Amino acid sequence: MSKDIGPWRRLSNKTVYENPWIRVEHHEVITPGGTEGIYGKVCFQSKAVGVLPLDEEGYTYLVKQFRYPLEVESWEIPEGGCPLDASAVATARKELAEETGLRAQRCFKLMDMHLSNSVCDESAEVFLALDLTQGEADLEPTEDIEVQRLALHEAIAMAMDGRITDAISVAALLKLRILLSECGGDMTKLLSTLAEVA
């Protein structure tokens, strides 16, 4: 069972809790410094996806929902969980439609992320959604969502001043701001730097 993991040596690995969304493992380890220790690892049963919608007038859409673990309301870009064997962009489109009613004709890969990588293996894929059409939202039973359409620069200001604290949302908004700045605000030039995904 012993296995080298980079500069660490894992001596044992035991699942101590599991549900449809996460698995918690207890590891006995030898640290990079050569000492014996333990490591708790949260393994996610899905990948996180985020989608930053941008309409032709330069407006984006945020959703506000109550986040149970933090016990607070949170403004975010549309997000959700994607089964590990499913298409991340297809799931992102589905989450966008469910939460906001928006359908995107074009999606571009904006970034990959690792979330809270000191204790978990959760990863995320984030997309920029364009050519939007409005339809009906279709919320899941666990969701109570408020949607707000606002100018992109206002959403970026919310990420900068702390009104948005969700990591995927902050990263997506600030990356888009930097890319737009580097391209002189030219969206066509910006899109040429991103991969369009079907």
Rank of each mutant, 00 (worst) to 15 (best):
A151P: 13
I5V: 12
I145M: 07
L54R: 02
K109P: 04
A92D: 02
E71D: 12
M160E: 15
E25S: 03
V51K: 00
L70P: 00
A195D: 13
N13M: 09
K3Y: 09
S192I: 05
T100V: 06
G37R: 03
N13W: 07
A155S: 09
V63T: 15
K47F: 06
F108L: 09
T165Q: 09
A198W: 04
T35M: 04
S46W: 14
E196A: 12
A159D: 00
Y68I: 10
S46M: 14
D4F: 07
M158T: 04
P32S: 10
K64D: 08
T142Y: 13
L102M: 06
V29G: 07
R9E: 11
D138S: 15
R9L: 10
A157R: 15
H27F: 02
E76W: 00
L152C: 05
H26R: 09
I145H: 04
I77Y: 00
G162P: 01
T60G: 07
V51T: 01
S87D: 10
E18A: 12
E56K: 05
Y61T: 10
M1G: 12
P78V: 01
Y59R: 11
S118G: 13
A86R: 14
S169C: 14
L174E: 14
Q65N: 08
T133H: 12
C183N: 15
K47I: 14
I164Q: 00
Q65Y: 11
G58M: 07
M160A: 12
Y39H: 13
P20C: 03
S118A: 10
E146C: 05
K109H: 15
G40H: 08
E36G: 01
M160P: 00
I5F: 13
V119A: 06
T193E: 05
T100C: 07
L70K: 08
V119K: 05
V49D: 00
Y39W: 13
R9Y: 02
H27E: 12
S12A: 12
R23F: 04
G101K: 01
A167M: 08
L54I: 11
F127I: 13
D4E: 11
V197G: 01
M1F: 05
S169L: 05
I22E: 03
G81T: 03
Y39G: 03
L150V: 10
S181F: 09
G33V: 00
V72C: 12
A48T: 14
S2G: 03
D112H: 12
K94C: 06
A155C: 09
C183R: 03
V42C: 09
L179W: 09
F108H: 11
E71Y: 08
G80S: 07
P83W: 13
T165I: 10
G101R: 01
G185V: 11
P78D: 02
S12G: 11
V16R: 03
G184K: 07
G101F: 01
E182C: 03
Q65D: 10
A167E: 10
V63S: 06
C183V: 02
D131I: 10
E76C: 03
Q148S: 11
E25Y: 09
E122T: 11
V16Q: 05
I156G: 02
A124K: 00
R67C: 10
E182S: 06
E36Q: 10
C43L: 13
C107I: 09
G80R: 01
E76G: 00
V63K: 01
